[in-house]
């Protein structure tokens, strides 16, 4: 008897208004205005250094972990400002999870403990049976359960790269966030693992709002509903959001010339 891996859940939207992102005195991203729709996959594309990763990291306040880095502007999760004076970044990150470029399971923990990490590390008291159910659900949700159910006690580092990345996705979803941010989640993986991750992303949007940074144009067109194009005018200049629209429109008939140049491969 398998639980339904993905029961549709109403996720939350993100709205950024006049968002400027700084590293010290350097303005890295300027004036972003965007609404990220709930239960959709939004891809962020653009050339290297255009600020798309910086923008992604600002959405769950990971940006400010770099010494000197800060954000100026407003980011709403539904209608709550995550940069409000009384907002706790730790709380923000509990609701907006993140998956990183390279798989990074905790090396000291088993597969089971990795998935349960978000709950255990916060020293929450949870019944063993509940925890088992949560871990199983998260692993099923990451299409990993059948591959690891017999070795949950083994170290997470023992898995293949693609499995490790899905383990990291399970770890991020086990804490039931509203939004999942993914920073080039497949760039360190082989093509088959990449497709597995893309399929997974399509399934995950039933429950989560997903924002994914990618360098891979095919990936953006395959896996996303909406696409946001970032660009930069030159080195030392800040990155900016050029346009955001449905993926179909961005790839077939973008409003801006520079977007067309980029998606048709004329530069970048």
């Amino acid at each position: 008897m398998t639980a339904p891996a993905h029961t549709p859940v109403q996720a939350k939207s993100i709205t950024a208004t006049d968002l400027d992102l700084y590293y010290g005195s350097f303005l890295a991203v300027k004036g972003v205005n965007i609404t990220i729709e709930p239960n959709k996959v939004t891809a962020l594309i653009g050339s290297s250094g255009c600020g798309k990763s910086t923008f992604l990291r600002s959405l769950n306040r990971m940006h400010e972990l770099v010494p000197g880095a800060y954000a100026d502007g407003e980011v709403l999760l539904d209608d709550v400002d995550i940069y409000a004076a009384d907002a706790d970044p730790v709380q923000v990150r509990r609701q907006i999870g993140m998956v990183f470029q390279a798989p990074n399971p905790f090396p000291t923990m088993s597969i089971y403990d990795n998935v349960a990490a978000g709950l255990k590390l916060n020293s929450r008291k949870i019944k063993k049976s509940d925890l088992d159910a949560i871990v199983e659900r998260a692993l099923r949700g990451a299409n990993l359960w059948d591959e690891v159910k017999d070795r949950l006690g083994k170290p997470g580092m023992g898995l293949s790269g693609g499995q490790q990345q899905r383990l990291c996705i399970a770890r991020a979803t086990a804490v039931e966030p509203d939004v999942l941010l993914m920073d080039e989640p497949a760039s360190a993986l082989d093509p088959i693992s990449t497709l597995a991750i893309e399929d997974l992303i399509t399934e995950l949007k039933k429950e989560y709002t997903i924002v994914i940074v990618t360098h891979n144009m095919q990936q953006a067109s395959r896996a996303s509903d909406n696409t946001a194009f970032f660009n930069i005018e030159g080195t030392g200049k800040p990155g900016r959001l050029v346009e955001v629209d449905t993926t179909e429109k961005i790839f077939s008939n973008p409003t801006h010339k520079e977007t067309e140049d980029y998606v048709s491969g004329r530069f970048g």
């Binding site: 008897m1 398998t2 639980a3 029961t7 706790d88 730790v90 709380q91 509990r94 709950l119 916060n122 929450r124 949870i126 049976s129 509940d130 088992d132 159910a133 949560i134 199983e136 659900r137 086990a174 804490v175 039931e176």
Partner: peptide, 22 residues
């Protein structure tokens, strides 16, 4: 094992703030 209702799980996971401040 998977008899636990999804909404129950969600409340288990979400319950209580985990403020790290102090």
């Amino acid at each position: 094992m998977s008899s636990t209702n999804v909404d129950d799980l969600q409340s288990v996971v979400r319950g209580g703030p985990a403020r790290g401040g102090a």
